[in-house]
Design a binder for these strands. Structure first.
Lengths: 205, 205
DNA sequence: GCATTGTTTGACCAAAAGGTCAAAGCCACG
DNA sequence: CGTGGCTTTGACCTTTTGGTCAAACAATGC
């Protein structure tokens, strides 16, 4: 593929097709578990053709992670210091649940990366992510200090939101196995459970 | 290796060494990401020697999973229907946190397996695990009906305990990256946060 | 309609990885 | 102290896999 600009129509289309296929394969087999042949087959392209658009398997994976990271932080960014505290937190929970519903593969891709020790995105976690979390934790701490939320460790509050919402994407198989075949969408009940949980946790007084 | 009984001293020792090495390698690289050579090296044995004790890479992995499953359910089994409801739930949270602290590799091994779609343990999830969870969920539902716990979906309550406690083992890298180098053991603060969380969530009245 | 640039692929390569085997080494016990 | 079974290993085999390359095949612009 050519160097910088000048992406043709075909390039745009095929890069998108490959990314979609790679997301499917990487998210369900992990980086090492995925093969380039698998991705190529999923994308409906030949392997050399795929490697014409990305220089290596690593590069495809990196591309996915970069794209993901770009949108992964948005829901937290949207936490508004000027808003009503409990509403803001619940809205954040809601946004995260929507992501687990609409982008479970992205969530699993991310989970895989972290589980392996985050070899490729550790700098980003220590930098961009930490900065954002620290900033929003400070906002929450302010709300608590003002008596507008019940006191609790803001960092662990954020961790608990991540953990609980992503659980339904990452551990989907287990959730469904335990709930049984009668439950079509575990996230529906999960959402009202989580609203209750965080409301009781954070309501002042 | 020989067939059924008659495990010699050396066999016992080497099987244990291999299991330990394999846990280390599988938990940090996943099944596909781990290589037999890596495990052999970690165990301080030659590859053929390792394959003298286990017939295949698959078999080692299966052995680990089976061993793990055996102890994985114990903390939930110990939830006592005759105990004080809130204390029982908090004690369960405590046990799960202890496991995240003492057996993070086992937790990651399990997480890896679920993330890949639980190919090897799905039957167990749908059988043994579901049965146990249903049973304990019924106990919790009884407590709630009797007004001894605030009402909430018992299944999702259990999921939330799993999710929150395992998060600190599985996503350890992320937690540490965000908290920064000043925090030695995130689980200390996590435990008091979680006690608060479930106390507020479940206290009746 | 042709030259230039972009796209696709069959054939191929080297390295990695799971696994085998025969032979050698070791150990326990009569 | 020697024999039979247990343990260990170097060498080897096969398959999988990431990646290359030259040549064929489109598309685009003049």
């Amino acid at each position: 593929m050519n160097k910088a600009q000048a992406t043709t129509r075909i390039q745009k289309r095929n890069v998108a097709i490959i990314a979609e296929a790679a997301l499917e394969v990487f998210s369900s087999h992990g980086f090492r578990g995925a093969t380039v042949d698998q991705i190529a087959k999923e994308a409906g392209l030949s392997k050399p053709n795929l490697l014409y658009y990305f220089p290596s398997k690593e590069a495809i994976h990196g591309h996915l992670l970069a794209t993901l990271m770009d949108t992964w932080l948005d829901p937290l960014r949207d936490l508004d210091p000027e808003g009503e505290p409990l509403d803001e937190v619940l809205a954040y929970v809601h946004r995260k649940i929507e992501i687990s519903r609409s982008q479970p593969r992205e969530s699993r891709l991310f989970a895989n990366e972290i589980l392996q020790g985050a070899p490729r995105i550790l700098p980003m976690l220590k930098g961009e992510l930490k900065d954002l979390v620290d900033e929003k934790a400070e906002v929450i701490r302010g709300w608590m200090a003002a008596g507008r939320l019940a006191p609790a460790d803001p960092h662990h509050l954020i961790f608990s939101i991540w953990s609980l919402t992503q659980h339904y994407a990452d551990f989907d198989v287990q959730v469904r196995a335990v709930l049984g075949p009668g439950v079509a969408d575990p996230l529906i009940d999960a959402e009202s459970y989580l609203v209750t949980l965080f409301t009781r946790m954070l309501s002042p007084g």
